[in-house]
């Protein structure tokens, strides 16, 4: 046991963020083949703490990567370390500090929710299983259904239960595989809010795989884009947006060309384009732009129908990454 491991695992418990800038997951040259299918192809990755989105269309290799991270699947080549421990060779050690929600996991339907969570707490080796189970079920807002059999749960309740069994025992990292894919829009927002809250209040990091982007951009700090077994790119959301979207605002108005012309000469505007009926503006100074835009619009008698900041538009970043052509197909897949 190295000193680094000790510092990461114990000092953290007492609120010492000794390894502040460190990465929590590191993958080096990870390749995974299933027979002839190459699910992952030489994946290199460093994941920081926080809320991280693992984004990609179906079949991109998200689940396979997650399964390797939690030591369930052995990589054909390469290695993954989680909090400095090898995820295959030291899987018990790794799993003691992370929680996992699998897609469509078969929870024992004959048990009541609270009974099941107690078993999970026991298997995780926690000192007070009853207390821990009780805390977890309340945190996900399922306290009212604690004595109901899991068989009677709706999809939304099932996802909450899945979250509860993952967060039991205060893990440092929780990995969620497609947590929102079966939920209705309200269910998605609720679940993501819950995740956001737990991240802020308890400092739990989250790795969330998904092919549904719009909700995630609100809560994610960092994104990893995957496609056909490769990591296309990863980085903080702000960095990625800056790099791949060459505009900061999109504006809808009555005569986009006229607005574009009016904005063109301003010194706080770097670049203006018109695309699909929207004015795409790249600005030098966000604040001055925001203050002046309504004035300019009023001068030219143009209504501002809609203004959107391009920050945090994951879908567009993804499209830009894939190139316009096959982006549509990939997202449909």
């Amino acid at each position: 046991m190295s000193i680094v491991w000790f510092m990461q695992n114990y000092l953290h418990t007492y609120g010492w963020d000794v390894m502040g800038e460190d990465f929590i997951i590191e993958a080096e040259g990870v390749t995974k083949r299933f027979g002839k299918v190459i699910a992952l192809n030489n994946v290199n990755l460093k994941v920081p703490s926080g809320v991280v989105g693992l984004i990609g269309p179906n079949g991109a290799g998200k689940t396979t990567l997650i399964n390797i991270i939690i030591g369930l699947v052995k990589p054909t080549r390469g290695r993954v370390s989680v909090f400095g421990c090898d995820s295959w060779k030291e899987r018990s050690k790794v799993l003691r500090v992370i929680g996992v929600l699998h897609e469509g996991a078969p929870y024992p339907t004959v048990l009541t929710a609270i009974k099941f969570l107690e078993y999970v707490a026991r298997i995780k080796g926690l000192a007070e299983p009853k207390v821990e189970a009780d805390m977890a079920i309340k945190k996900v807002g399922l306290g009212w259904a604690r004595n109901r059999k899991i068989a009677t749960f709706s999809t939304g309740m099932m996802q909450r239960l899945g979250l509860a069994q993952a967060i039991i025992g205060r893990p440092r990292l929780v990995i969620l595989d497609e947590p929102t894919s079966n939920l209705d829009p309200i269910g998605r927002v609720n679940l993501l809010n819950l995740i956001h809250q737990m991240n802020r209040e308890e400092g739990i990091s989250f790795l969330i795989s998904t092919h549904i982007l719009p909700e995630l951009e609100r809560i994610a700090d960092y994104a990893i884009f995957m496609h056909e077994g490769h990591v296309l790119e990863s980085g903080s959301l702000d960095e990625l947006v800056k790099k791949h979207l060459n505009y900061d605002f999109s504006i809808w108005t009555q005569h986009p060309e006229r607005l574009a012309e009016a904005l063109h000469s301003k010194d706080y505007v770097k670049q203006v384009n018109v695309k699909d009926g929207a004015v795409l503006v790249n600005v030098e100074d966000r604040l001055r732009f925001a203050m002046n835009l309504p004035v300019i619009a009023a001068e030219h008698n143009l209504p501002l129908i809609e203004i959107r900041q391009s920050r945090r538009n994951l879908e567009e970043v993804f499209m830009a990454l894939l190139g316009d052509e096959d982006a549509g197909n990939a997202y449909e897949a």
């Binding site: 899987r91 018990s92 799993l95 699998h102 996991a105 078969p106 298997i123 995780k124």
Partner: peptide, 12 residues
């Protein structure tokens, strides 16, 4: 059915 996969996601 994946029950064992679920169990293996805990430190056991």
């Amino acid at each position: 059915k994946g029950n064992i996969k679920l169990l293996l996601s805990y430190p056991v």
